[in-house]
């Protein structure tokens, strides 16, 4: 599995997006998340189970100006 274009070494069966966020310490409250190019909304972070060959992207959504 890839996270932000880099290999993600800690993939395991049943891993969810929330699991990656907790493991990688993503604490920013506004995130833009895509799995294999598809946008995932926050309500689905717990539900989406990642496959070994998935391409996960997690970006901070900034608001400052």
């Amino acid at each position: 599995m890839k996270l932000n274009n880099r290999p993600y070494a800690d993939w395991h069966e049943g891993l969810t997006i929330r699991g990656v966020m907790e493991h990688m310490n993503f604490t920013w409250p506004k995130l833009v998340v895509k799995v294999n190019g598809q946008l995932i909304w926050p309500e689905d972070y717990d539900k989406v189970v990642l496959n070994e060959d998935d391409d996960l992207k997690i970006h901070h959504l900034l608001g400052g100006g």
Partner: peptide, 20 residues
């Protein structure tokens, strides 16, 4: 809203509270 459906309850982080 397509990217992130709801506005946050509190600003992230508060407008003047981060370095630039």
């Amino acid at each position: 809203r397509c990217l992130s459906p709801d506005e946050p309850e509190t600003e992230v982080p508060e407008a003047s509270g981060f370095g630039v």
